[in-house]
Amino acid sequence: MLSTTDLVFRMGKRALIDRISARFEAGRLHLILGPNGAGKSTLIRLLARLLRPTAGKVLYDDRDAVSWSERELARRRAVLPQAIEVAFSLPVRELVLMGRYPHFGARPGAEDLAICDEVMRFFDVMAMADRSYGTLSGGECQRVQFARVLAQIWRPIEGATRHLFLDEPLTFLDVRHQIDFMEKVRIFAAEKDVVVVGVVHDLNLAVQFADRLLLLDQGRVLADGTPAEVLTGENLRAAFAVAPVLLTNPATGKKHLVFESGMKGR
């Protein structure tokens, strides 16, 4: 389990994250929502320990994240960002193998190579294994990055939880690949020892896939719970300043959102 206690992150005088206490359970898909500037990415970066908090704590399995060594942490948490620029063009297989860096010393073992093959098959990039990363399309690049990031935490660790953080990874994908990726994340998140926390911009994707939602506004938690609990008209108006219309998908019973216009007309 992953949790935060009174987490604060200040940049200068401004608190980007303002006393957030939250819990993220294993086996569930947690998504963070909120308007621009709400602190979503900052929270993800704090959770993944890419940033150190100004005050408060991030706890991995009830142990302060700050106390883990870089390598210990790298074996149990992976982060997928929006897009990655690779400075020098590597073959795809080498790039995916980078995900195993925290697990091997000078050269990869048989296990590392086997995991690379598995994740490349999982993300359907096996066919481009020997191509140069620089020759791939934007969507292909992102799938290769998914494979690399999941290679990092592909196997369970005894007595420890694995953590996957997603920082708006869907931004440059078309709708088919968005759904495809979210389905794969769901499969991964369903494992009992995996905590997945992500930021997704598309509210409807969030409704469709999340088990739990955390709605942020101005660095604070506005609502925390199941999609049905969080995505109420009141919360959405407060956070996004738009008037939502909630429709129910007759096939799944899940809510979907349509936005009428700004608040001015009301």
Binding site: R45, L95, G99
Partner: peptide, 20 residues
Amino acid sequence: AKSLNALMIGDDQATALGVN
């Protein structure tokens, strides 16, 4: 060498891969 390789994919990702 390995840490410099990890840096090819950016500071954040290198950090995520355990590089200080």
